[in-house]
Design a protein around this nucleic acid. Sequence first.
DNA 1: ACACTACGATCCGCTTGATGGAACATGCGT
DNA 2: ACGCATGTTCCATCAAGCGGATCGTAGTGT
Lengths: 257, 257
Amino acid sequence: MIAQTGTQSTDRAAQLLLRVVEAREPLAVGELATATGLPKSTASRLLGSLERAGLVQRDGARGGVRPGPALLRFAQRGVAGDDIVSLADGALRELAAVSGETVNLAVPAHDGPDTIAEIETGHVLGTGGWVGRRGIPQHASAFGKVFIAFGAARLPRGELVAVAPRTITDRRRFDAELARIRVSGYAVAVDELEDGLAAVAAPVRGALGEVVASLAISGPTLRMPALRLEALGRLCVEQAAALSTKLGSPPVREGAA
Amino acid sequence: MIAQTGTQSTDRAAQLLLRVVEAREPLAVGELATATGLPKSTASRLLGSLERAGLVQRDGARGGVRPGPALLRFAQRGVAGDDIVSLADGALRELAAVSGETVNLAVPAHDGPDTIAEIETGHVLGTGGWVGRRGIPQHASAFGKVFIAFGAARLPRGELVAVAPRTITDRRRFDAELARIRVSGYAVAVDELEDGLAAVAAPVRGALGEVVASLAISGPTLRMPALRLEALGRLCVEQAAALSTKLGSPPVREGAA
DNA sequence: ACACTACGATCCGCTTGATGGAACATGCGT
DNA sequence: ACGCATGTTCCATCAAGCGGATCGTAGTGT
């Protein structure tokens, strides 16, 4: 992280701007000053600067401060969805580095998880080639289970087809599995999609808090004892949370600065 | 406008943030420094501050700067559409003050212009009570003509019904009228909706440049000679442009600061 | 109608925090 | 392995930001 000195006024202005974009209604200058602990004069001056730049604007009458034209333009333009691949880059690398296994990023699609990014392992025995592969059963993959557990996909009607030795086919058991995933924050699938294939996956949330993607680590079952799965799952959760934050997902709630 | 002193660093940081928000792809720190004319060191320091606040973030690898979580969250939350009424307040007042006539703000609806704000005149003979009135013919009102001319509404099929002495009923003439509106930037309707009622209207554009509303001045025909209509039309255009800017509509193109 | 109150903008001497050139990392391409 | 391009940190200098006090203004209550 970058040095934190020599930027007092910018830090303050940034705090003011944060309050403005996070508020749902126009804020008074005084309110902002109080909320950020700044003298009114300083708040007024800084807001003036932000206003000149078009980052905030005021209501004609009561002088309420709200996001400015530049930000409204940005908001309307929307955020390109595939940005997620480049934003995920760091998380993928990190997971690949510490796990030494294949790492994937997938988004929910109508016919199952759609893998959109991958980093392969150095191992000879590996689990690559996921990108672009469609039609992976929702109920038999760690990705799919994450999406179902967190409301980003629905379990298709009909029987839960067994595609591997340990595929969960009983709906009651599957519901229990979903509950476990919601509690632990990550999904595990061992010999459920293919015999000998194990994976863990964690949800990535978008700006509205909804699950938009999933990060997974996968490898041969024989390199994935229970303890390691647990550790890798927690790693996934951690990196997925970091990525969620980058996507604008509401953070864990931090007190006022 | 507020004083422009005592905010050098904030002004600079705001410029950096503007560039980042307006760019469609991640920008390098060096690029930003060059574009804003700042020394690299200063740009780096200020960007660090913005990054800490979550207003910008960087790509893992090549360190490209892009809008941060806080702004993505804001963008996703979207902008409440009815904000336009409060943002329009200033424009309405200004127009009412200089024209002394009734001023209205309308948005396009499926069954004709929907008037959502109004300031009445001091005159006894006036044209009030527009708010909430539905079913105003598109082709016979200044509002409707603006919406049609700028693609915010379509002319309904079928005959152009004459609802007043000078309603335009010939499609060829109506097309010519639309062309004139696009060129002059405002629409005029005299004795077209009601005998003795005259109005001018100009388009208000949203953050994507599309027409989202219209500002109009209306009054008795006998107070509205041709020359005055022209002057009022230009006033409408002016205020509508200002309001468009507040809504985030791309400005007229101004050079780098 | 009038004074009162609340809020925001401005002023200005003091000093603290921002400045930017240069040196130092980092990581890429070849 | 080397050099180049890019980003970060350092630090002496001094200008720019700070904030308490003051002023202007618009809304409010009686």
